[in-house]
Write a protein that binds this DNA or RNA. Structure first.
Length: 427
DNA sequence: TCTGGGGTCCTAGGACCC
DNA sequence: TCTGGGGTCCTAGGACCC
């Protein structure tokens, strides 16, 4: 028998996090905005009812502020990440096998115990999370990740399910569900595949399951073949129990306004480097290369367009801000062009590996630079820990600049900052 | 006027080798 | 005049995800 796999995900996660601390806004249309207050990246039920789409530019829906009392929050990822890790801890109370998939969803694995009441399990998970964090969730239960995702979609789509869909206990339910879900609702089917498959008459998830693994493999790709296999109840995706290293770490931001001068772009890159390296060091890892990217606003019809990237590689693995910042500046020298209205910059750390598995480089120069760099690194880190990321930076990098994105309505860090702990008034 | 940020995996094709 | 076949490795870019 196969293991039982549950997918638990937070409903309207970011909007729910805001509402958990602002119960006065429950029942109102609420959206959470991306960096630069640009797009809607989470919507309360009432905001969805207004027809606001995922990732819709805010300027297109701002008029609802006046007509329908729409409330917009700037994204507060510190808050959402903290709530997310609390939810993961709760799930770990149900099973040791929890694999967080994104900030708002986790897979949970259970051994195939016969006689376990899976519907009750799902409901217990939901009510525990709701009581302890205030976040509503949906639970999909099956024997493969893809089916658990589909069950979870169904739990959202059909309110009658009460937020839990179990495809294990009643075998026939799987086929009935596959017949009513269309392929674009299947995990792994995006725009391109949706179009091609529909042209072949494959419309429902059941059609896709019946298409067969080998046909999917020969006519499309191994990726689609795995999806087909999983829809048929045969696990084809690995279970990640361990916390793995990232393959790459990306840090990027759009600017708050158009930027023409190189110094300001350097300042932004330096900030991105310090964020990414902080993450790298938290994983006790090192990277071998850094890619920098700069670009103008691709959506603009009037701006002169330019976009480029450059990768700098080091013969020895690195995890210090000083060296990466130098490399980023050198990379920028390679691709910088004067006269363009830059809209965005970013960096990617590549070829990441654990520091523990490192082999000594026989040809590395044997001097004391590493120690000095590490001292410098610790000083920068302690300043940033105390005064906030970006307080201390390297070289000519000014942390101020005028590149920072807008974030005009950020909520307090209720759960991670003593100064922001909510107070309760008792009248 | 105003269109996000952070990831993973796969594939095709070029460079290179014998 | 005639110009192979098989393999590996690497990288850029596509597709997909939340």
């Amino acid at each position: 028998m196969n293991d039982i796999i549950c997918l638990v995900d937070g409903n309207n996660m970011f909007a729910s996090c805001e509402l958990a601390f602002r119960p006065d806004l429950i029942g109102k249309p609420v959206v959470v905005l991306s960096s630069n207050d640009a797009c809607c990246i989470a919507r309360s039920y009432e905001a969805k009812a207004l027809g606001i789409k995922m990732a819709q530019p805010y300027f297109e829906v701002r008029h609802f502020e006046k007509t329908h009392g729409l409330i917009a929050f700037s994204a507060n990822f510190t808050l959402y990440t903290d709530i997310s890790s609390r939810i993961v801890s709760i799930l770990e109370g149900f099973t040791p096998h929890v694999a967080p998939y994104s900030i708002d969803e986790s897979f949970c694995r259970f051994p195939p115990l016969t006689g376990m009441d899976l519907l009750k399990l799902g409901n217990d998970i939901r009510s525990t999370i709701l009581t302890q964090t205030g976040i509503g969730t949906g639970v999909g239960i099956s024997t493969t990740k893809t089916l658990a995702k589909l069950a979870n979609n169904a739990a959202k789509k059909f309110p009658k399910t009460g937020g839990v869909v179990d495809l294990v206990t009643d075998e026939k339910r799987r086929e009935r569900l596959l017949a009513v879900m269309e392929i674009n609702e299947v995990w792994g089917i995006g725009k391109a595949l949706n179009k091609k498959l529909r042209a072949m008459g494959i419309i429902t998830a059941l059609d896709l399951a019946k298409f067969g693994e080998s046909a999917a493999n020969s006519q499309f790709s191994v990726t689609l073949a795995r999806t087909v296999s999983e829809l048929n109840g045969i696990p084809a995706l690995p279970w990640e129990d361990d916390i793995e290293l990232n393959d790459q770490i990306i840090a990027t931001r759009s600017f708050g306004e158009k930027i023409f001068d190189k110094e300001t772009v350097i300042a932004s890159l330096s900030y991105h480097v310090s964020r990414a390296v902080k993450k790298l060091r938290l994983q006790n890892a090192v990277a071998h290369s850094i890619t920098i990217h700069i670009r103008t606003n691709a959506n603009s019809k009037i701006d002169k367009q330019y976009s480029n990237s450059y990768t700098c590689r080091s013969s020895t693995p690195i995890n210090d801000v000083v060296t990466f910042t130098k490399m980023a500046k050198a990379g920028l020298d390679e691709i910088w062009r004067d006269g363009f209205p830059y809209a965005k910059s970013g960096i990617t750390l590549n070829e990441i590996e654990s520091k523990n598995h490192l082999q000594e480089d026989l040809f590395a120069s044997d001097d004391n630079h590493d120690e000095k760099k590490n001292d410098m690194q610790s000083v920068i880190e302690s300043i940033n820990t105390r005064y906030g990321l970006g307080a201390a930076n390297v070289g000519s990098a000014k942390s101020g600049g005028n590149w920072q994105p807008k974030s005009e309505n950020r909520s307090p860090n209720y759960t991670t900052s003593w100064a922001d702990i909510p107070t309760i008034k008792a009248d």
